[in-house]
Simulated scan of single mutants.
Amino acid sequence: MITHVASLLLSSGTLPGTSMNSCNATQGHPPFFILQGIPGMEDKHRWISIPFSSMYFVTVLGNCTILFTISTERSLHKPMFLLLYLLALTDLGMSTTTIPKVLCIFWFGQSKISYEGCLTQLFFIHSISAMQSSILMTMALDRYVAICEPLRYATILSNSRIGLIGIVSLLRAILFILPMPILLQKMPFRANHVIPTTYCEHMAVVKMVCVDTTINRIYGLVVALLVVGLDISAIASSYVLIIRAILHLSSKEAHLKAVNTCTTHICVMLVSYTPSLFSFLTHRFGRGIPPHIHTILGNLYFLVPPMLNPIIYGVKTKEFRDKVIKYGCWKKEPVTIAHG
Protein backbone atom coordinates (compact mmCIF):
# COMPACT_ATOMS: atom_id res chain seq x y z
CA MET A 1 0.00 0.00 0.00
CA ILE A 2 1.04 3.60 -0.65
CA THR A 3 -0.50 5.89 1.95
CA HIS A 4 0.56 9.36 3.02
CA VAL A 5 3.40 7.60 4.85
CA ALA A 6 4.95 7.29 1.39
CA SER A 7 5.56 11.02 1.46
CA LEU A 8 8.34 10.23 3.93
CA LEU A 9 10.29 8.90 0.97
CA LEU A 10 10.32 12.39 -0.46
CA SER A 11 12.48 13.65 2.35
CA SER A 12 15.22 11.26 1.29
CA GLY A 13 16.06 13.55 -1.60
CA THR A 14 17.70 16.95 -1.75
CA LEU A 15 15.94 19.61 0.24
CA PRO A 16 15.68 22.67 -1.96
CA GLY A 17 16.02 26.06 -0.40
CA THR A 18 17.78 24.88 2.75
CA SER A 19 20.54 27.30 3.49
CA MET A 20 23.13 26.45 6.09
CA ASN A 21 23.96 30.12 6.58
CA SER A 22 20.41 30.96 7.70
CA CYS A 23 21.13 29.12 10.96
CA ASN A 24 22.66 32.31 12.29
CA ALA A 25 19.22 33.95 12.27
CA THR A 26 17.38 31.39 14.39
CA GLN A 27 18.68 29.23 17.19
CA GLY A 28 16.43 26.41 18.35
CA HIS A 29 12.87 26.26 17.14
CA PRO A 30 10.53 29.16 16.27
CA PRO A 31 7.45 29.83 18.45
CA PHE A 32 5.18 29.16 15.47
CA PHE A 33 5.06 28.30 11.78
CA ILE A 34 2.98 30.02 9.12
CA LEU A 35 0.98 27.75 6.84
CA GLN A 36 0.79 29.56 3.54
CA GLY A 37 -2.24 27.68 2.25
CA ILE A 38 -2.30 27.03 -1.48
CA PRO A 39 0.65 28.99 -2.93
CA GLY A 40 -0.34 31.46 -5.62
CA MET A 41 -4.06 30.99 -4.99
CA GLU A 42 -4.47 32.91 -1.74
CA ASP A 43 -7.11 35.18 -3.33
CA LYS A 44 -9.19 32.11 -4.22
CA HIS A 45 -9.14 30.47 -0.80
CA ARG A 46 -12.78 31.35 -0.08
CA TRP A 47 -13.94 29.68 -3.30
CA ILE A 48 -11.75 26.63 -2.78
CA SER A 49 -13.18 26.24 0.72
CA ILE A 50 -16.63 25.43 -0.73
CA PRO A 51 -15.75 21.99 -2.16
CA PHE A 52 -13.36 21.35 0.73
CA SER A 53 -15.97 22.01 3.41
CA SER A 54 -18.63 20.08 1.46
CA MET A 55 -16.43 17.01 1.16
CA TYR A 56 -15.45 17.24 4.82
CA PHE A 57 -19.12 17.39 5.83
CA VAL A 58 -19.87 14.26 3.78
CA THR A 59 -16.79 12.59 5.30
CA VAL A 60 -17.91 13.24 8.88
CA LEU A 61 -21.51 12.25 8.15
CA GLY A 62 -20.57 9.05 6.32
CA ASN A 63 -17.98 7.79 8.79
CA CYS A 64 -20.10 8.67 11.82
CA THR A 65 -22.93 6.70 10.21
CA ILE A 66 -20.61 3.69 9.90
CA LEU A 67 -19.45 4.00 13.51
CA PHE A 68 -23.00 4.39 14.85
CA THR A 69 -24.49 1.58 12.78
CA ILE A 70 -21.80 -0.98 13.59
CA SER A 71 -21.76 0.01 17.27
CA THR A 72 -25.53 -0.41 17.71
CA GLU A 73 -26.15 -3.47 15.52
CA ARG A 74 -24.92 -6.65 17.17
CA SER A 75 -25.46 -8.57 13.92
CA LEU A 76 -22.62 -6.50 12.42
CA HIS A 77 -20.14 -7.44 15.14
CA LYS A 78 -18.16 -9.57 12.72
CA PRO A 79 -14.50 -9.33 11.66
CA MET A 80 -15.25 -7.70 8.29
CA PHE A 81 -17.41 -4.97 9.83
CA LEU A 82 -15.09 -4.47 12.80
CA LEU A 83 -12.31 -3.77 10.30
CA LEU A 84 -14.63 -1.33 8.55
CA TYR A 85 -15.20 0.30 11.95
CA LEU A 86 -11.45 0.74 12.43
CA LEU A 87 -11.09 2.09 8.88
CA ALA A 88 -13.83 4.65 9.56
CA LEU A 89 -12.00 5.74 12.72
CA THR A 90 -8.77 6.31 10.81
CA ASP A 91 -10.59 8.10 7.97
CA LEU A 92 -12.31 10.40 10.45
CA GLY A 93 -9.08 10.97 12.35
CA MET A 94 -7.07 11.66 9.20
CA SER A 95 -9.45 14.29 7.83
CA THR A 96 -10.14 15.92 11.21
CA THR A 97 -6.41 16.24 11.94
CA THR A 98 -5.95 18.49 8.90
CA ILE A 99 -9.13 19.86 7.29
CA PRO A 100 -10.47 22.06 10.16
CA LYS A 101 -7.14 23.95 10.20
CA VAL A 102 -7.22 24.18 6.40
CA LEU A 103 -10.70 25.74 6.57
CA CYS A 104 -9.51 28.19 9.24
CA ILE A 105 -6.79 29.31 6.82
CA PHE A 106 -9.28 29.67 3.97
CA TRP A 107 -12.06 31.39 5.93
CA PHE A 108 -10.33 33.46 8.60
CA GLY A 109 -6.72 33.71 7.45
CA GLN A 110 -5.55 31.96 10.64
CA SER A 111 -2.35 30.66 9.12
CA LYS A 112 -0.27 30.53 12.32
CA ILE A 113 0.27 27.17 13.97
CA SER A 114 2.37 26.79 17.10
CA TYR A 115 5.59 24.82 16.92
CA GLU A 116 4.16 22.19 19.29
CA GLY A 117 0.89 22.11 17.35
CA CYS A 118 2.78 21.59 14.09
CA LEU A 119 4.75 18.63 15.43
CA THR A 120 1.57 17.19 16.95
CA GLN A 121 -0.20 17.41 13.60
CA LEU A 122 2.83 15.82 11.92
CA PHE A 123 2.70 12.92 14.38
CA PHE A 124 -1.02 12.28 13.92
CA ILE A 125 -0.92 12.55 10.11
CA HIS A 126 1.76 9.89 9.75
CA SER A 127 0.73 7.63 12.64
CA ILE A 128 -2.90 7.46 11.46
CA SER A 129 -1.64 6.76 7.93
CA ALA A 130 0.50 3.92 9.25
CA MET A 131 -2.44 2.48 11.18
CA GLN A 132 -4.69 2.76 8.12
CA SER A 133 -2.08 0.84 6.15
CA SER A 134 -2.27 -1.99 8.68
CA ILE A 135 -6.07 -2.07 8.53
CA LEU A 136 -6.18 -2.30 4.74
CA MET A 137 -3.59 -5.05 4.86
CA THR A 138 -5.72 -6.93 7.42
CA MET A 139 -8.76 -6.48 5.17
CA ALA A 140 -6.84 -8.25 2.39
CA LEU A 141 -6.02 -11.05 4.85
CA ASP A 142 -9.71 -11.21 5.79
CA ARG A 143 -10.70 -11.72 2.14
CA TYR A 144 -7.97 -14.36 1.72
CA VAL A 145 -9.22 -16.38 4.69
CA ALA A 146 -12.87 -16.00 3.60
CA ILE A 147 -12.11 -17.43 0.14
CA CYS A 148 -9.19 -19.80 0.68
CA GLU A 149 -9.94 -21.04 4.21
CA PRO A 150 -13.72 -20.59 4.65
CA LEU A 151 -14.12 -23.47 7.12
CA ARG A 152 -11.47 -22.01 9.44
CA TYR A 153 -12.60 -18.38 9.08
CA ALA A 154 -14.18 -18.09 12.53
CA THR A 155 -11.11 -19.66 14.13
CA ILE A 156 -8.47 -17.61 12.33
CA LEU A 157 -10.24 -14.22 12.45
CA SER A 158 -12.29 -13.97 15.62
CA ASN A 159 -13.55 -10.66 16.99
CA SER A 160 -10.99 -10.74 19.79
CA ARG A 161 -8.21 -11.29 17.27
CA ILE A 162 -9.38 -8.28 15.25
CA GLY A 163 -9.21 -6.22 18.45
CA LEU A 164 -5.67 -7.46 19.06
CA ILE A 165 -4.69 -6.57 15.49
CA GLY A 166 -6.08 -3.06 16.05
CA ILE A 167 -4.00 -2.62 19.21
CA VAL A 168 -0.84 -3.93 17.54
CA SER A 169 -1.43 -1.62 14.55
CA LEU A 170 -1.76 1.36 16.89
CA LEU A 171 1.40 0.47 18.81
CA ARG A 172 3.34 -0.07 15.59
CA ALA A 173 2.26 3.32 14.27
CA ILE A 174 3.22 5.11 17.49
CA LEU A 175 6.61 3.40 17.82
CA PHE A 176 7.57 4.11 14.21
CA ILE A 177 6.33 7.70 13.98
CA LEU A 178 7.10 9.11 17.45
CA PRO A 179 10.87 9.48 16.79
CA MET A 180 10.15 11.94 13.95
CA PRO A 181 8.95 14.87 16.08
CA ILE A 182 11.48 13.94 18.77
CA LEU A 183 14.36 14.24 16.29
CA LEU A 184 13.03 17.56 14.99
CA GLN A 185 12.86 19.03 18.51
CA LYS A 186 16.65 18.94 18.78
CA MET A 187 17.31 20.87 15.56
CA PRO A 188 17.62 24.60 14.76
CA PHE A 189 15.25 26.05 12.17
CA ARG A 190 15.62 28.70 9.52
CA ALA A 191 14.51 32.25 10.20
CA ASN A 192 11.94 32.03 7.41
CA HIS A 193 9.46 29.57 8.89
CA VAL A 194 6.71 29.80 6.26
CA ILE A 195 5.53 26.33 5.22
CA PRO A 196 4.19 26.56 1.64
CA THR A 197 1.24 24.22 2.19
CA THR A 198 -1.87 23.82 4.36
CA TYR A 199 -0.63 21.30 6.94
CA CYS A 200 2.50 20.10 8.74
CA GLU A 201 3.96 16.82 7.58
CA HIS A 202 7.43 15.37 7.87
CA MET A 203 8.86 16.49 4.54
CA ALA A 204 7.56 20.05 4.89
CA VAL A 205 8.94 20.52 8.41
CA VAL A 206 12.31 18.92 7.60
CA LYS A 207 12.74 21.52 4.85
CA MET A 208 12.58 24.22 7.55
CA VAL A 209 15.67 22.81 9.31
CA CYS A 210 18.93 24.61 8.53
CA VAL A 211 21.41 21.87 9.50
CA ASP A 212 22.15 18.48 8.03
CA THR A 213 19.00 16.33 8.05
CA THR A 214 20.54 13.04 6.93
CA ILE A 215 19.29 11.19 10.02
CA ASN A 216 15.73 12.46 9.52
CA ARG A 217 15.76 11.55 5.83
CA ILE A 218 17.17 8.07 6.40
CA TYR A 219 14.70 7.40 9.20
CA GLY A 220 11.81 8.57 7.02
CA LEU A 221 12.96 6.25 4.25
CA VAL A 222 13.26 3.28 6.63
CA VAL A 223 9.80 3.87 8.07
CA ALA A 224 8.23 4.17 4.62
CA LEU A 225 9.86 0.95 3.45
CA LEU A 226 8.97 -1.00 6.58
CA VAL A 227 5.38 0.22 6.91
CA VAL A 228 4.33 0.73 3.31
CA GLY A 229 6.60 -1.89 1.75
CA LEU A 230 5.64 -4.73 4.08
CA ASP A 231 1.91 -3.94 3.88
CA ILE A 232 1.96 -3.76 0.08
CA SER A 233 3.78 -7.08 -0.07
CA ALA A 234 1.23 -8.69 2.24
CA ILE A 235 -1.71 -7.32 0.22
CA ALA A 236 -0.16 -8.44 -3.08
CA SER A 237 0.56 -11.92 -1.71
CA SER A 238 -3.00 -12.24 -0.40
CA TYR A 239 -4.52 -11.38 -3.77
CA VAL A 240 -2.16 -13.70 -5.65
CA LEU A 241 -3.40 -16.56 -3.47
CA ILE A 242 -7.01 -15.36 -3.83
CA ILE A 243 -6.76 -15.28 -7.64
CA ARG A 244 -5.21 -18.74 -7.66
CA ALA A 245 -8.02 -20.07 -5.47
CA ILE A 246 -10.69 -18.46 -7.67
CA LEU A 247 -9.20 -20.01 -10.81
CA HIS A 248 -9.52 -23.44 -9.22
CA LEU A 249 -13.23 -23.01 -8.52
CA SER A 250 -15.40 -25.25 -10.67
CA SER A 251 -18.57 -23.25 -11.37
CA LYS A 252 -18.99 -19.80 -12.88
CA GLU A 253 -21.39 -18.90 -10.08
CA ALA A 254 -18.70 -19.69 -7.50
CA HIS A 255 -16.28 -17.50 -9.47
CA LEU A 256 -18.65 -14.53 -9.38
CA LYS A 257 -19.45 -14.97 -5.68
CA ALA A 258 -15.75 -15.06 -4.79
CA VAL A 259 -14.98 -11.99 -6.91
CA ASN A 260 -17.89 -10.05 -5.39
CA THR A 261 -16.50 -10.62 -1.90
CA CYS A 262 -13.31 -8.81 -2.94
CA THR A 263 -14.63 -5.94 -5.07
CA THR A 264 -15.46 -3.69 -2.11
CA HIS A 265 -11.98 -3.98 -0.64
CA ILE A 266 -10.37 -3.51 -4.07
CA CYS A 267 -12.42 -0.32 -4.64
CA VAL A 268 -11.39 1.03 -1.23
CA MET A 269 -7.72 0.29 -1.94
CA LEU A 270 -7.89 2.03 -5.32
CA VAL A 271 -9.57 5.06 -3.76
CA SER A 272 -6.98 5.17 -0.97
CA TYR A 273 -3.91 4.62 -3.11
CA THR A 274 -4.62 6.70 -6.19
CA PRO A 275 -4.49 10.24 -4.66
CA SER A 276 -1.43 9.48 -2.52
CA LEU A 277 0.38 7.68 -5.35
CA PHE A 278 -0.34 10.50 -7.77
CA SER A 279 0.76 13.08 -5.19
CA PHE A 280 3.95 11.11 -4.49
CA LEU A 281 4.84 10.82 -8.19
CA THR A 282 4.22 14.51 -8.89
CA HIS A 283 6.40 15.51 -5.92
CA ARG A 284 9.15 13.12 -6.90
CA PHE A 285 9.23 13.55 -10.68
CA GLY A 286 7.00 16.51 -11.55
CA ARG A 287 9.53 19.31 -11.11
CA GLY A 288 7.66 21.50 -13.59
CA ILE A 289 4.28 21.14 -11.87
CA PRO A 290 3.19 24.35 -10.06
CA PRO A 291 3.32 24.29 -6.22
CA HIS A 292 -0.43 24.84 -5.89
CA ILE A 293 -1.07 21.57 -7.77
CA HIS A 294 1.15 19.70 -5.29
CA THR A 295 -0.73 21.24 -2.37
CA ILE A 296 -4.18 20.52 -3.78
CA LEU A 297 -3.22 16.89 -4.50
CA GLY A 298 -1.93 16.54 -0.96
CA ASN A 299 -5.19 17.83 0.46
CA LEU A 300 -7.23 15.49 -1.73
CA TYR A 301 -5.66 12.57 0.13
CA PHE A 302 -7.33 13.81 3.32
CA LEU A 303 -10.68 14.39 1.61
CA VAL A 304 -11.40 11.91 -1.19
CA PRO A 305 -10.71 8.46 0.37
CA PRO A 306 -12.39 9.25 3.73
CA MET A 307 -15.42 10.62 1.86
CA LEU A 308 -15.75 7.75 -0.64
CA ASN A 309 -15.04 4.76 1.63
CA PRO A 310 -18.41 4.91 3.47
CA ILE A 311 -20.21 5.38 0.15
CA ILE A 312 -18.46 2.36 -1.36
CA TYR A 313 -19.35 0.13 1.57
CA GLY A 314 -22.91 1.48 1.63
CA VAL A 315 -23.41 0.66 -2.05
CA LYS A 316 -21.50 -2.64 -2.26
CA THR A 317 -22.38 -4.31 1.06
CA LYS A 318 -26.07 -5.25 1.24
CA GLU A 319 -26.02 -6.30 4.91
CA PHE A 320 -24.59 -2.95 5.96
CA ARG A 321 -26.84 -1.00 3.58
CA ASP A 322 -29.96 -2.65 5.01
CA LYS A 323 -28.98 -1.64 8.54
CA VAL A 324 -28.36 1.97 7.49
CA ILE A 325 -31.77 2.10 5.80
CA LYS A 326 -33.31 0.70 8.96
CA TYR A 327 -32.06 3.71 10.94
CA GLY A 328 -32.54 6.22 8.15
CA CYS A 329 -36.24 5.59 7.52
CA TRP A 330 -39.20 6.21 9.75
CA LYS A 331 -41.12 3.06 10.58
CA LYS A 332 -44.80 3.49 9.88
CA GLU A 333 -47.02 2.45 12.72
CA PRO A 334 -50.12 0.48 11.72
CA VAL A 335 -53.30 2.53 11.89
CA THR A 336 -56.05 1.03 14.01
CA ILE A 337 -59.63 1.96 13.10
CA ALA A 338 -62.22 1.58 15.79
CA HIS A 339 -65.53 0.09 14.64
CA GLY A 340 -68.90 0.62 16.15
Rank of each mutant, 00 (worst) to 15 (best):
F108T: 10
S111C: 14
L35E: 06
P79Q: 05
L83D: 03
F52Q: 07
G62L: 03
I50L: 11
C23V: 05
L83W: 03
S114C: 10
G62D: 01
S111P: 08
I38V: 12
V58N: 01
M55E: 02
L87Y: 10
G37N: 04
C104N: 13
C64R: 07
S75I: 07
I38R: 04
T69Y: 00
K112P: 04
P51I: 11
K44D: 14
T59L: 06
H77S: 01
M41S: 14
E42Y: 08
T59E: 04
F32Y: 15
L76R: 04
L76W: 05
L87N: 14
F32C: 09
S54G: 04
F32S: 14
M55Q: 04
P51A: 11
K78R: 09
V60P: 02
I38P: 00
S114A: 13
G17C: 01
L82K: 05
C64Q: 05
S71E: 01
Q36E: 15
V58F: 12
K44G: 11
I113Q: 05
T26V: 07
E73V: 01
S19D: 03
P39M: 10
H29G: 10
H29P: 00
I70M: 02
S75Q: 05
L76Q: 03
Q36R: 15
S49M: 06
K112Q: 15
I38Q: 06
T97P: 01
A25M: 10
M41P: 04
Y56V: 02
Y56A: 10
K101L: 07
L35A: 08
T90E: 12
F81H: 11
C104M: 13
T69S: 02
P51D: 07
S49P: 00
K101R: 11
Q110I: 08
N21A: 14
R46M: 14
M94Y: 13
M80C: 01
